[in-house]
Design a protein around this nucleic acid. Structure first.
Lengths: 355, 355
DNA sequence: CTGTTAGCGCTTTCAC
DNA sequence: GTGAAAGCGCTAACAG
């Protein structure tokens, strides 16, 4: 006589308790399948399962059925409101489709990003959503390309949020247009000397934003020599550092465009610490419109992206294995002018110098 | 002759390609196990795996080995900085231990919370971390208790962040003490009529915060009749609604304690809309110290909790299946007084009335 | 060191 | 309808 195993009850236990075959128990517990089990039996099985506190083993199910309902989500940092917003949308869609979400935080490490995609593949996820722009590195691009191709070959879907230089569905924020709108607006407000707090130019997103800004400003007749670009990490500290650099360098700029709101937050802190008044001494604009921006005083101008919608769309693209090629879905970027940007006249006093 | 399956390569494929047995291939690919495989063979196997773009099947592995390296994290809303902060800490620990994190967003639905725990159990996760206070509902408590007991019986660990009225490891924020500190500070600043923007009292966290506040204020000699408590949803809108109610009711309070920063955000917005100046007309205090609070103007007083550390600790407790009973780890709450709270004299003009 | 052999728990033909 | 049996891909004893 065998001693009862310690672990949780299995389907076999349930079947035995209900006096039916394994197959029948499985059918009763998975209504979706073939023709149903007789009501009487079904109830008996359900009761037995309940009594035994049966919890199906998702791994066994996945192995036997060759199906899973999990998705992977890769992001840099969940406390960054940008990614949190996207994650919320993506998770909402996954939830609606009954899919479990596995989240990988890369903290901006390409290796970790690759590692997560591999792990997700091992988990045989249905779909993976990659947020944050790609890394401009041939090794990375090739490796990631292979992973994704393999994933696809195995029947999985995936989508990017932001450019990735790799084939795949993309939710593409209007980085260029948004930044261009910022540039035009600043020039229209009379600004003739501009500064940009940029991120590492290895990030496609950064390049697009800076590019769009510079081109638009030039198109307005302001020479690119009047634009001072400082590249710092794509973080709050980076923004702080950029502001410091600009101020220390005695920049004559009257307006500062930060390529992300988080950077703007850091820059604003540095400005405040130096006694530089916004917008009187310097106009400031961010990008993304994270919730905090409108609450600051003065409220900060920025480019609004519907983060949640972007996350939703990306997850849908990744999950819907429809025919046809890869789709690129634009995510409109809308300039939101707030009190942090003001008009200057030609004689405006430049910011900078010692605080 | 069989046609090659379409799916991804299996271990058997790798073994065949390398001319070794299944077991050997498995050993070569899992260095952790028994004594190693001869270098020559190992390299051959590794190469074959690489050539075939072999991706281990985590489900098969879990099923055969009876081991997983996944953890579940339950939270209400990832865009809420409170949960994002905790999640970051929890995910960091999971990452260090090589565990994959599955995240469930409940949006404050007890049913969904239960559902996630069930799903995590089906996934045979090693540990689950439950954030957000428990729901004061007997049905919920019993059901959740059973799920967790079953999970534990199956060898899994779990931990709560905040009180849960259920046995288990707990990371316990100093809600009572923190709120008490707020109460004392306000009384010391001369406030004699206090208002509280509270959340649903079914949330343990809310009860502890309000309780701690009220008791401390009374202990300072201010009668509880001088404290006006308004319960609204535990959200930004709830904070807005609470402020509206207080103002419309012609509250004579000179200070407002919001049981969470997110509620404070809503309340502040309503106050600003009504022309109530902080802190001149009304002092405001929040709870949690989400990053935004110190950036507002005036910077908002609040009670600091080290969210990330809380998340880390919780994940560690859930993962470390050490002997002994359940542990309760306090998370210190530290009052942070900022410019949103000011001294009033006895003749202070009460806020309220039509804006 | 390496190969053989059982399963892990479940879904799924295929018969009845 | 329901049962029997064959795996899903892998790990883990056992033997050699």
């Amino acid at each position: 006589m065998r001693i009862r195993r310690d672990g949780p009850a299995t389907l076999a236990d349930v079947a035995r308790a209900a006096g039916v075959s394994l197959a029948t128990a499985s059918r009763a517990l998975n209504p979706g399948g073939q023709r149903a089990v007789r009501v009487e039996l079904r109830e008996r099985i359900l009761r037995a399962a309940d009594d035994l506190r049966y919890v199906p083993n998702a791994h066994a199910r996945a192995l036997a059925g060759g199906t899973t309902t999990t998705v992977g989500l890769v992001l840099h940092d969940i406390t960054d409101p940008y990614f949190a917003g996207i994650a919320r949308g993506a998770m909402a869609v996954a939830g609606d489709r009954g899919a479990l979400v596995m989240v990988g935080s890369t903290f901006r490490s390409p290796e970790r990003e690759l590692e997560f995609v591999r792990t997700f593949r091992a988990q045989r996820v249905d779909a993976v959503v990659l947020t944050g722009s790609g890394f401009e590195d041939d090794g990375y691009r090739e490796a990631m390309g292979e992973e994704l191709a393999g994933h696809r070959r195995a029947g999985g879907g995936y989508a990017f949020v932001s450019e990735h230089d790799l084939p795949g569905h993309v939710v593409l924020p209007g980085n260029g247009e948004g930044a261009a709108a910022v540039g035009r607006a600043l020039v229209e407000l009379g600004h003739r000397r501009l500064a940009v707090a940029g991120g590492p130019s290895s990030l496609t997103t950064v390049r697009h934003r800076i590019g769009g800004f510079v081109r638009a400003v030039e198109a307005c007749g302001v020479p690119s020599a009047a634009i001072e670009v400082v590249d710092r990490p794509f973080s709050e500290d980076g923004g702080r550092a950029a502001a410091r650099e600009l101020l220390d360098g005695g920049s004559g700029a009257t307006a500062l465009f930060c390529v992300s709101d988080v950077m703007a937050l850091g820059a604003l802190e540095e400005l405040a610490a130096r006694g530089v008044t916004v917008p009187d001494d310097l106009s400031v604009v961010g990008f993304n419109d994270i919730p905090t921006m409108r609450r600051l005083s003065p409220p900060v101008s920025t480019v609004r992206l519907d983060l949640e919608a972007m996350g939703r769309t990306a997850m849908e693209l990744a999950l819907d294995r429809d025919a046809g090629g890869f789709r690129t879905v634009p995510a409109p970027a809308e300039l939101v002018l707030r009190a942090s940007t003001a008009r200057v006249d030609a004689a405006a006093r430049p910011a900078g110098g010692r605080g």
